[in-house]
Amino acid sequence: MNLRKLDLLRGCAFGLLSVGLAGCDSGADPRAQGSRLESFGGPTMGSSYSVSYVRRADQPGVAAVQPEVQAILAEVDRQMSTWRSDSDIERFNALPADSCQAMPEPVLQLVRLGEQLSQTSEGRYDLTVEPLLNLWGFGPQSRTEQVPDADQLAQARRRVGHQHLRIEDQRLCKDAAVEVDFNSIAAGYAVDRISARIQALGIKDYLVEATGELKAVGKKADGSPWLIGLEQPRDDQRIAQRVIALDGYGVSTSGDYRKYFLRDGHRYSHTLDALTGAPVEQALASVTVMHPSALMADGLSTLLLILGPERGWDYAEQHHVAAFFVIRDGKGFIIRSNRAFDQLSGGDAVPTKLANDATKG
């Protein structure tokens, strides 16, 4: 599968991720009679996915669960991938202005969410940024990373804007040659779909991960919590700066510290502000969001990263978003989490400074 989420690190199924997984059982605790930890995973969305769950005597094994998960991931790829020309959304993207196309309900669901996030961010977050991503060198049709001139930027911006989309019955329509990019929310959507399917199979304790998006419910076989390590935004190595217990929430981290290019001493991140058409330039290195929906955590983490450390913080407070900010400060970072995040993770809300001499930018 080729659908990639550009603003997350890719990690293995077990071990520390961008929003890392820690503390996985290797088997059942002797006290947990009749249960054991089952795990499986594989490639997806240009990266990987993993599922760990506590299997009890009356619950299905991996041979029954894994095909269900893979079917969901394959469906997401067919509907939403911008990295295959025959997906539903890429066939829509290839249409000219004043066109409509019948769409499956999941695609329309994500378009509606994109409109909501675009409106509440005053247009800075937008699903139609693919022409800009391609122009700067970060998109599926990119040839090379570049700093576009004013004319190129103005031309691409005419094809950006959620106001150019509308839904008529089960059709998605556009009045300009816009192109929709679901890379900031598709993985979170997939995690929610997998989570719902696993619950429908009677499994009550599990952790689902796809391309770094996570959701955990219940406990491990020994009764201990699922533990998630939040990674420092470093270029040189992966170090957890905070570990949280997770139960009933999705977690997403968006950052600008891995996907960028340097030109004439200037650092250009892949995270674009749809209003300016240019990469965001601010001190916010990464944002982690906790939310009952992995889909919402996915979209909101990107939105807050685009807004930056001040506007993003105010948005999180106004909309009651549980958020954890890592802000550049010289050669180190200032870590700041809001009360909603600390109440869920058991931390404290006092900003702390983390030294990091090895970090670029």
Rank of each mutant, 00 (worst) to 15 (best):
R36W: 11
L300F: 13
L153Q: 06
V147I: 15
A316V: 15
L95G: 06
N93G: 05
V217I: 11
D192P: 04
G46N: 05
L17C: 14
P96C: 00
L17G: 14
D88S: 11
G61E: 10
F182G: 06
D151E: 14
V69F: 07
P67S: 01
F333K: 05
K174T: 01
S35K: 02
L21M: 04
L117W: 15
R157H: 03
G212H: 05
G161S: 04
G223E: 03
P106W: 08
D126C: 10
T288C: 13
T128F: 01
L230S: 04
P67F: 00
A297G: 05
K5C: 14
L284A: 10
A200R: 08
C173M: 02
A358R: 14
T144A: 15
P279F: 12
G46R: 05
R238P: 00
A190D: 06
D342C: 15
G202K: 07
G23R: 01
C24E: 11
R197A: 11
G123F: 08
A285C: 10
Y257C: 05
S345D: 04
Q101C: 08
P351T: 11
E90C: 09
V62G: 00
A323N: 10
R197N: 05
L73W: 12
Y315A: 12
Q282V: 07
R91A: 06
A64P: 00
D126S: 04
R91I: 09
K360V: 12
L300D: 06
A316F: 15
G250A: 12
G250W: 13
S35D: 00
A221L: 02
G20D: 11
L284K: 11
D348Y: 14
A200Q: 15
M103H: 06
A32I: 03
P233D: 05
S118M: 04
L354K: 04
G248R: 07
E209W: 04
R336S: 14
F261G: 07
V243Y: 03
L307C: 10
L133V: 03
W313Q: 10
A349R: 14
M296D: 01
G330T: 13
E168S: 09
L275I: 14
Q141Y: 11
V289Q: 05
S85C: 03
G218Y: 09
Q33H: 10
D342E: 15
G361R: 13
G139V: 03
G346H: 07
D273I: 08
D235P: 08
Y249W: 12
S286Q: 15
I335E: 12
G218I: 11
D151S: 11
F40L: 00
L246D: 05
H320E: 13
D205M: 00
G250V: 13
A154N: 09
P140S: 10
E209Y: 04
L305E: 09
E231P: 01
S252F: 14
L272R: 02
A216Y: 10
V321Y: 08
V251D: 06
S50Y: 12
S337V: 13
Q66N: 04
Q343I: 06
Y315C: 11
N2F: 04
V54M: 04
A71M: 10
Q170T: 13
D357C: 02
G41M: 12
S99V: 02
P30C: 07
M296K: 09
S224H: 07
S224W: 03
S18K: 07
A187S: 15
I306D: 09
Q101S: 11
V243E: 04
Y189R: 06
D175R: 03
Y206G: 02
T359N: 06
F40E: 01
E209T: 15
L354D: 06
